[in-house]
C-alpha cells in the first residue's frame, strides 16, 4: 500500500499539474472563438446528459491548426524563435564555458563564493532585472553614456528594442543555467587525467580538447538544453527588450491571448510549441540518463 502511494505520487502530480492543464488547453485549441466568458465555444455541459456531451464533441475541430498554416506569421515566428534560441544558446555556451572552467580551476576555498555569485541574481525579481537592462541599454542609458564619455562613439547606439537587446537579455538571464551544469562536470574531473595526458605527449591545449572537453560534454549538453528549451518559448524578454521586428512565438502567443482574445488560436500555438519542445526535452532526458550510467 505504501509502495503504491510512493509510486503513484509522482504520477498524480504529473496528472494534476501537467496532463489536466494540457487537456484543457488542447480542448480550447479545438474550440471556436466566441464573444462570451470564457471566450470560446462549445462549453462542456455535463448537466445536459449524454446528448450534450455528443454535441460538445461534434463542436470540436482542427480549424485553428489549419488557420496557423494559412498565415505565414506563425511559422515565421516559430522559425525566428528557433533561430534566436539557437544563437542565444551558442552565445551562452561561449561565455559560460570559460566562466565555469575558471570556477572549477579556482582554489577550493573560493569555489562556494564564486558559485554564490553565479546564483546571486536569482535573489532579485526577474522582471526588475529586465527593467534594469532597459535602463542600461536605452539611448540615454548607462552603456551609451559610458561609451560617449570614453569617446568610442559620437552618437548613441540603438540597442534597446532590437534583437541585440533580446540576445543580451536572454544570455544574461539564462547564463547560470549554462554555467552550473558545466561547472559540476568540470569540478568532478580529476586533475591527474590532464597530467597523464601531458605525460603521454599532449600539449596543454591538446589535453584540453582531448580530455577536458569530452569529459564536460554531458555538462555542455545539459546546459544547452536548459538554455534552449525556455528560450524557445520566451515572452517577457522579447516583449520588453525587443522591438516590433522581434518575432518570437511566445510574444505571438501573448498577443493572440490578451490583445486578440483569441484563446483557441493561442492554445493551438501553445500546443504546437509544446510538440516542438518535446524533442529537445527527450534528448535532454537521455543525456541525463547517459551521465548517470557513466557515473554508476
Amino acid at each position: 500500500m505504501r509502495r503504491a502511494i510512493l509510486i503513484l505520487t509522482p504520477y498524480l502530480w504529473l496528472f494534476a499539474l501537467f496532463l489536466i492543464p494540457f487537456l484543457i488547453v488542447l480542448k480550447i485549441s479545438l474550440s471556436d472563438a466566441a464573444l462570451a466568458i470564457p471566450p470560446y465555444a462549445p462549453q462542456l455541459d455535463l448537466a445536459g446528459g449524454w446528448s450534450a456531451i455528443k454535441d460538445f464533441f461534434a463542436g470540436l475541430d482542427f480549424e485553428n491548426f489549419e488557420f496557423l498554416t494559412t498565415d505565414d506569421l506563425y511559422w515565421k515566428a516559430y522559425l525566428s524563435s528557433f533561430k534566436i534560441a539557437l544563437i542565444s544558446t551558442a552565445l551562452a555556451l561561449l561565455i559560460g564555458y570559460p566562466i565555469a572552467y575558471s570556477m572549477a580551476r579556482a582554489a577550493p576555498e573560493w569555489r562556494p563564493t564564486l558559485l554564490m555569485l553565479v546564483i546571486l541574481p536569482f535573489w532579485t525579481s526577474f522582471l526588475i532585472r529586465v527593467y534594469a537592462w532597459m535602463g542600461i541599454l536605452s539611448n540615454e542609458g548607462l552603456l551609451n553614456q559610458f561609451l560617449l564619455w570614453t569617446g568610442l562613439i559620437a552618437e548613441p547606439l540603438t540597442i534597446l528594442n532590437t534583437n541585440y537587446a533580446v540576445y543580451i537579455g536572454i544570455v544574461y538571464t539564462y547564463l547560470p543555467f549554462m554555467i552550473l551544469p558545466i561547472y559540476s562536470a568540470l569540478e568532478k574531473m580529476d586533475d591527474s587525467l590532464l597530467e597523464a595526458a601531458e605525460d603521454l605527449g599532449c600539449s596543454r591545449t591538446s589535453a584540453f580538447w582531448l580530455i577536458t572537453i569530452p569529459l564536460s560534454k554531458t555538462g555542455i549538453t545539459a546546459g544547452c538544453f536548459l538554455v534552449f528549451i525556455p528560450t524557445l518559448g520566451e515572452f517577457v524578454i522579447p516583449s520588453l527588450l525587443g522591438g516590433s521586428q522581434t518575432l518570437m512565438i511566445g510574444k505571438v502567443l501573448w498577443e493572440e491571448f490578451f490583445n486578440n482574445r483569441d484563446w483557441p488560436v493561442a492554445s493551438a500555438v501553445a500546443i504546437i510549441l509544446l510538440l516542438i519542445l518535446i524533442i529537445p526535452i527527450i534528448l535532454f532526458q537521455r543525456n541525463e540518463q547517459k551521465q548517470r550510467e557513466m557515473e554508476g
Binding site: L193, E195, C202
Partner: peptide, 29 residues
C-alpha cells in the same frame, strides 16, 4: 614540460581516461 620529457609515468590513481575505451587509453600516447 612533462610532454617533452623522455619519461612516462604510471599514476598511483591510474588516471585512466574515463571517456575512452581500454584500447584508446593505451593508444593515447
Amino acid at each position: 614540460p612533462p610532454n617533452k620529457r623522455p619519461v612516462n609515468m604510471m599514476f598511483q590513481s591510474y588516471a585512466l581516461f574515463p571517456h575512452l575505451s581500454i584500447y584508446e587509453n593505451i593508444a593515447f600516447g
